[in-house]
């Protein structure tokens, strides 16, 4: 009887430990509405670079995942030129939990991995739009802390909380 009281409590504890880090850190990206005659949803990538230098870690990349044939959606990934050089080119796509379809104007929240070693980082978000512009926004932050930045053209506010 005593045993059966203790046992159900264990899964609850476990669930609690998993949920807490996800709440701890996330980044919200705003894709602004752009009033142009020919609008295409931008390719957007976000990645973390240790402030002291080191390998970049891609958090997300949104591209035309469905387009196949002679000109697959992956063709224009190199237009995210900084992300491409910092690690995009060696990422095998599609990548589970990282790549996804392009998004239209709006606010999107992406979790910052719970296993990120503590320290100072720079979150970089790069957007490139067909027949449009390209923008790179840097947001410095410390693991566990907050941060914010904003683009001027292709990206809106970017907040870490």
């Amino acid at each position: 009887m005593t045993r059966s009281k203790i046992l159900p409590a264990l899964p609850l504890l476990a669930a609690g430990t998993i949920a807490t880090p996800a709440l701890a850190a996330s980044v919200t990206i705003t894709i602004p509405q752009i009033k142009v005659a020919e609008y295409h949803r931008p390719y957007v990538a976000g990645w973390l670079e240790p402030a002291a230098g080191g390998a970049a870690r891609t958090l997300f990349v949104w591209y035309d995942v469905k387009k196949r044939g002679n000109e697959p959606g992956t063709k224009w990934l190199a237009d995210l030129r900084t992300w491409w050089r910092k690690g995009g080119r060696s990422l095998k796509l599609p990548a589970d939990g990282v790549s996804g379809a392009t998004r239209g104007p709006g606010r999107y929240t992406v979790a910052i991995p719970a296993n990120l070693p503590s320290g100072q980082y720079v979150l970089k978000v790069e957007a490139a739009r067909e027949t449009g512009g390209r923008e790179l926004v840097s947001v410095p932050f410390t693991v566990g802390g907050k941060g914010s930045g904003s683009g001027k053209t292709e990206l809106g506010s970017i907040t870490i909380r």
Binding site: K75, L77, A78, R81, W84, R89
Partner: peptide
Amino acid sequence: STSNLATTKE
């Protein structure tokens, strides 16, 4: 035309 291509289909 470019120094970088994203795929091997180009």
